[in-house]
């Protein structure tokens, strides 16, 4: 996976063109990971607090 887009100009010199768009699925995946990670953490926390609520104190 490339980090940068690099092309060659008419004289064969390398030219920096910008970020590689290989990183687009990475950014999207990171967003999904945050969402799924938080959903899991939220479910575990709710389950834990529910069990504590049911146990005799």
């Amino acid at each position: 996976m490339e980090i940068f887009r690099i092309t060659r100009n008419a004289w064969g010199q390398e030219t920096l063109e910008g970020m590689s768009w290989d990183l687009l699925p990475v950014a999207f995946g990171l967003g999904l990971a945050i969402i799924i990670g938080h959903l899991v953490w939220r479910a575990v926390r709710r389950k834990g607090s529910g069990e504590r609520g049911r146990s005799p104190s």
Binding site: G18, L24, G31, L32, I34, I35
Partner: peptide, 18 residues
């Protein structure tokens, strides 16, 4: 300039989803 623009756009995509 293009690298910074693209990198910031990718960060914005992740943050917008969140």
């Amino acid at each position: 300039v293009y690298v910074l623009h693209g990198a910031a756009a990718l960060v914005i995509l992740t943050l917008t989803m969140a």
